[in-house]
């Protein structure tokens, strides 16, 4: 009787230990640690500054409401002007859940993109981040930016609220999550994740090194 009891509980504990060990092993096998690459360098629907055929592609996963992303915004702008067609700068959405209006901002940029003014709206949203971030509702403010940019307001409002736009943003978000992004901005150069450079000069040095390698 005692032997039977020991076998019953011993067997149960053994099976549970094997199950937990197996779960840990599978979890680590499925890419433990940081995945540091992205596969799709430039997709057809991506927003690109510079030439899409450039040998160096800088991909940024960004959140319009994140202060650090705003800090990098003029850096990327200057780098894009400097490198011209030599480097492609891709912007992808990664709205963080703790930022109340981040998704709306991404939708507004996409809606403006439908009328060919993604980057104009992108700039406006970052330039005025402090203003709309603190607002109770940001939709009216984004509509005001659309007006200032000369967009068709009805189409903009419709596109901002459309499922298609939400899916478009969600796709970026999903890809970012698959690449184990957990902070914004996160930069990739030719698909490899880099530590966010601490200055414009450092960013430029990293890009120049990659440019030299590809030549």
């Amino acid at each position: 009787m005692k032997k039977k009891r020991v076998a019953l509980w011993g067997g149960t504990i053994l099976i549970l230990v094997v199950a937990v060990g197996g779960a840990i092993w599978i979890a680590n096998r499925d890419g433990g640690g940081d995945v540091t690459t992205i596969e799709n360098l430039i997709r057809a629907e991506d927003h690109v500054k510079g030439s899409a055929s450039a040998m160096v592609v800088v991909t940024e996963y960004s959140d319009f409401q994140c202060p650090a992303c705003k800090t990098y915004y003029p850096v990327i702008q200057t780098l894009a002007e400097e490198y011209g067609d030599k480097v492609a700068f891709v912007y992808r959405h990664f709205p963080l859940p703790q930022h109340q209006h981040a998704k709306r901002a991404a939708y507004a940029a996409e809606a403006a993109g439908k009328q060919g003014k993604f980057w104009e709206m992108h700039d406006k949203i970052f330039d005025n981040q402090d203003a709309w971030s603190r607002a109770e509702s940001a939709e009216g403010i984004f509509l005001g930016y659309a007006r200032e940019l000369g967009l068709d307001e009805d189409a903009f409002a419709q596109d901002s609220a459309s499922d298609e736009t939400a899916i478009r943003v969600k796709k970026d978000l999903e890809e970012g999550r698959q690449a184990r992004i957990n902070a914004t901005p996160t930069f990739f150069i030719n698909g490899s994740k880099i530590e966010s450079p601490r200055s414009y000069d450092e960013f430029k040095r990293i890009i120049s090194e990659r440019t030299a390698k590809t030549q």
Binding site: V20, A23, I26, A27, N28, D30, G32, G33, V35, R177
Partner: peptide, 24 residues
Amino acid sequence: SAYLTATHYAGSALSCGFFTGCEQ
């Protein structure tokens, strides 16, 4: 649940098959 807990602490990607919202 043990697999989900392990992936949480390992920081690894989930194999999600047909569904697409696992990571989210």
